[in-house]
Nucleic acid binder design. Structure first.
Lengths: 130, 130
DNA sequence: GCTGTATGAATGAAGG
DNA sequence: CCTTCATTCATACAGC
């Protein structure tokens, strides 16, 4: 995946947002912006270590570890795993077959709609590069 | 204003675009560019048929139908509906600009922005027991 | 050519 | 768990 540069400043230097009149119109800077280290470690856990549904204690420990790399809270880790699981599953479901009546059957030879490779339907959906 | 002319090659020869030498493929095709047929059908579904949040299976069927009109993937259909909902809502909210300024009555001490369901880390949410 | 706008894509957060 | 919302980034296209 190439356009992974979602976050501009991701070096854990989340400065005090909103403390002064620094950012105009930035009232909703509340959301956690993971650092690259955060992402790297979380994906390592999820994909390589097979940590898919960490327990509370595990989540707390992970959170504690990640805090060294930047500001992070428990719920951030929790939601990250929830979302990762959900999106993995959705990707899987999206690629499963669906029974649809093929209309215009037999006439498709004229137009090569099925020219492009089948390819995975979700392609690159925010998962790690295996 | 609104550049509603979202047709890369709109003259019915979309399908033929893949037969001969394709357009230059820099890496991967950047992002999905819907054809006018795609847009027409999607809007027909959204506005006339009232399809606002199709299920996964509905999305798969819609995607398969739309594939006849040009290259499209599951996630394109999925994101299209997500974005359409979000932007319809935003537009509506912005148009009928009444916007009551969230009167908060000042009685309750506004403690934290992160008003998560569970103030302390797990409190009541510990329901996952595998 | 750059700049503004519309829109595809991504993801944190939450609801149910 | 599954679905949805909100916000943001990225990019194609139009007008200047």
């Amino acid at each position: 995946m190439e356009p992974q540069n979602q976050h501009p400043t991701e070096d854990g230097s989340n400065k005090a947002a909103g403390s002064s009149a620094n950012m105009l119109r930035r009232k909703s800077c509340t959301r956690w912006i993971p650092t690259t280290d955060h992402i790297r470690i979380l994906k390592e856990l999820f994909y390589n270590k097979g940590v898919r549904s960490p327990t509370i204690e595990q989540t707390q420990r992970i959170c504690l570890q990640l805090k060294w790399y930047g500001k992070i809270e428990f719920k951030n880790v929790y939601f990250w795993f929830v979302n990762q699981r959900a999106r993995e599953k959705k990707k899987k479901r999206s690629t499963s077959d669906v029974h649809v009546p093929m209309q215009r059957s037999g006439l498709v030879g004229d137009d090569n709609v099925t020219n492009w490779k089948h390819e995975d339907q979700w392609g690159t959906m925010a998962v790690m590069d295996p």
